[in-house]
């Protein structure tokens, strides 16, 4: 059997009395198009935060390509090829997209600590920034202040920055959250055009986006994995329907 790109083993997270992640054993295969869905408060973002190293798990392990990264710092996980985007924009409001993407590129090239070379004049950085800006439709806003960008553009920048790290595993935390209908197509477009060798885990509420994108789907309910299967299996699974319809009944 091939080795999973990213794997959790018996992952648990307690916040005081709240059991936010319950014994989650999960596998993301290389190049996968995998979605993680679940009702509000199911613990999806908590789970992603443990994968990316923002939150330490209470117990259990996280493996990246077979290597235990449970206690590795977030920036070192990025170096090993695990990148993520954030549900709520976590961008650098006073920097431009060019600077933002440039920093991510510089870190990946291992020149982020250079003190006496000129950031703006660096050819390697500039070439990659231009390429990413093209891929993510940011060419026309590269030199504007990030805080002044349209919301949809900020979401695209989120994706571009994550991709600048050239990850082999990419965690997308609700990339289309709050994006107006007209701009959702842009987001879906770039998400579908992600390099096929990158394993992508998509956390999303929008079922249209989930079924347009995912080949495999895992369903998280109250912190535990309820079911895991192909998109077709999940679409007809009665338990999943019950969870979503049940939630609907309670309003």
């Amino acid at each position: 059997m091939t080795q999973p790109a990213l794997e959790t083993i018996n992952l648990q997270k307690h916040f005081g009395g709240v059991h936010a992640t319950r014994d989650v054993t999960f596998r993301l295969m290389p190049g996968a198009r995998h979605a993680l869905i679940g009702p509000n408060g199911a613990g999806k973002t908590t789970f992603v935060n443990q994968l990316s190293g923002v939150l330490p798990p209470s117990s259990g392990r996280v493996l990246l390509e077979g290597i235990d990264i449970t206690h590795l710092r977030p920036d070192l996980r990025v170096r090993r090829g695990l990148a993520r985007t954030f549900q709520i924009n976590q961008l650098f409001k006073d920097l431009t997209p060019r600077q933002t993407i440039g920093v991510a590129v510089a870190q990946r090239l291992g020149i982020g600590g250079r003190m006496f070379s000129h950031f703006a004049a660096d050819r390697h950085i500039a070439t990659e920034v231009d390429k990413l800006a093209d891929d993510f439709r940011l060419g026309d806003v590269l030199d504007l202040r990030t805080a002044d960008l349209a919301y949809g553009k900020q979401r695209l920048l989120e994706l571009a920055v994550a991709l600048a790290a050239k990850p082999r595993v990419l965690l997308l935390d609700e990339p289309a959250a709050g994006v107006p209908e007209a701009e959702r197509r842009d987001i879906l477009g770039v998400v579908q055009a992600l390099p096929s060798d990158v394993a992508v885990l998509l956390i999303e509420h929008d079922m249209d986006l989930v079924f347009a994108f995912a080949e495999r789907i895992s369903v998280l309910v109250e912190g535990a994995l309820l079911v895991d299967g192909t998109a077709a299996e999940i679409a007809v699974d009665p338990r999943v329907r019950a969870v979503y319809l049940g939630e609907g009944n309670h309003g």
């Binding site: 990316s52 190293g53 923002v54 710092r73 977030p74 920036d75 070192l76 990025v78 170096r79 990148a83 993520r84 954030f86 976590q90 961008l91 650098f92 409001k93 006073d94 920097l95 920093v103 991510a104 870190q107 990946r108 982020g112 600590g113 920055v161 994550a162 600048a164 790290a165």
Partner: peptide
């Protein structure tokens, strides 16, 4: 300065 959490998430050793 702008966002240490995100800086770490793009690989900056904060």
């Amino acid at each position: 300065r702008d966002n240490p959490l995100r800086a770490a998430a793009i690989g900056v050793p904060v």
